[in-house]
Simulated assay, not measured.
Amino acid sequence: MTTLISIGTLAKRSGVKASALRFYESKDLISSVRSSGQTRQFPREVLRRVAFIRVAQNVGLSLEEISAALASLPQQRTPTPEDWAQLSQSWRPMLQARIDALCALQTLLDSCIGCGCLSLQKCSLYNADDQARHLGSGPRFLMGDSAADLVLKE
């Protein structure tokens, strides 16, 4: 027999507010059953599922990515340590791409310290004479374009 706990107990034990738990439930990340008094009751193993969600969020995954990971588990079960190892391995390339993007952004910001222009149109270092306009709208160099792309576009 599955032990059921109230939403208040789940909130207290997981450190997640009841409103967030209701939101997770609305997104089908967790599920409850209703008691005869129509209050939410959660299987005790939902504690591990909530822990999984919180850790995945702390890693930087979106709720959509977390939902897809949980949906990949048989019968919506709570992730096991083996599941976590497999899922976290599959996330490594995405996380590395995010790390690389942040490092590139940090390098760009470091090279502009002291300039003070705060304008990608006027910046003589990164966008002399607003040449990046040929690449499209938006902050082209921050989006990954380079000066070499300008030569190809012209």
Score class of each variant (00 low, 15 high):
Ser90Met: 15
Cys115Pro: 04
Ser6Gln: 14
Gln106Leu: 08
Lys122Ser: 13
Ala11Arg: 06
Cys112Val: 01
Gln86Thr: 13
Arg40Ile: 06
Ser72Arg: 14
Gly37Pro: 02
Ser137Tyr: 01
Leu73Arg: 03
Ala11Val: 08
Ser146Asp: 04
Leu95Trp: 02
Leu47Ile: 09
Thr107Pro: 03
Gln41Thr: 06
Ala71Glu: 06
Ala56Cys: 07
Ser124Leu: 11
Gly60Asp: 05
Gln131Met: 13
Gly114Met: 03
Ser90Asn: 15
Gly15His: 11
Thr2Ser: 07
Asn127Met: 03
Asp149Ser: 14
Ser26Lys: 05
Ala11Asn: 06
Glu65Gln: 14
Met94Ile: 15
Ile66Thr: 08
Gly114Trp: 03
Leu63Thr: 07
Lys153Leu: 10
Ala128Tyr: 13
Ser119Cys: 00
Lys153His: 12
Ser137Met: 02
Cys123His: 08
Gln38Asn: 12
Lys12Tyr: 04
Val33Asn: 12
Leu95Val: 06
Arg77Met: 03
Ala18Cys: 00
Asp28Ser: 11
Trp84Ser: 12
Asp129Lys: 10
Arg49Glu: 00
Gln75Arg: 12
Leu63Val: 06
Phe42Thr: 06
Phe42Ile: 02
Gly37Glu: 07
Leu125Cys: 04
Leu109Val: 15
Asp129Glu: 07
Gln121Asp: 08
Arg48Gly: 09
Ile7Glu: 01
Thr2Val: 13
Arg133Glu: 13
Ser90Pro: 09
Gln38Val: 08
Gln41Leu: 12
Cys103Ile: 14
Lys122Thr: 14
Ile5Asn: 01
Ser124Lys: 14
Leu120His: 09
Leu61His: 07
Phe42Met: 05
Gln86Leu: 12
Gln89Arg: 14
Phe23Ile: 03
Leu10Lys: 03
Pro79Trp: 00
Gly116Val: 10
Ala104Met: 13
Gly15Thr: 12
Ile99Lys: 05
Lys153Phe: 07
Leu150Ser: 08
Arg44Gln: 06
Trp91Ser: 01
Gly136Lys: 01
Arg44Thr: 09
Ser72Ala: 15
Val151Asn: 09
Cys112His: 02
Asp145Tyr: 13
Met143Tyr: 12
Phe42Ser: 03
Gly8Cys: 04
Pro139Arg: 09
Glu45Tyr: 09
Gly144Pro: 00
Ile66Glu: 00
Leu142Pro: 06
Gly8Ser: 14
Ser14Pro: 01
Gln38Trp: 07
Thr78Trp: 01
Thr2His: 10
Leu61Lys: 05
Thr9Trp: 02
Lys122Phe: 11
Ser88Asn: 08
Glu25Phe: 07
Ser36Met: 14
Glu25Tyr: 05
Ala104Thr: 15
Gln106Lys: 11
Gly114Glu: 05
Thr78Glu: 13
Arg22Trp: 01
Ala56Asn: 01
Leu21Glu: 00
Leu61Asn: 03
Ile30Thr: 07
Phe52Ile: 04
Arg54Asp: 00
Phe23Tyr: 09
Ala68Gly: 10
Asn58Thr: 05
Ile53Gly: 00
Glu45Gly: 04
Ile53Ser: 00
Ser26Gln: 11
Ile113Tyr: 13
Gln38Glu: 11
Arg54Cys: 01
Arg140Val: 10
Gln76Ser: 08
Lys122Cys: 12
Pro81Cys: 14
Leu10Tyr: 03
His134Gly: 09
Leu73Asp: 01
Asp129Gln: 06
Leu118Ser: 15
Pro79Val: 08
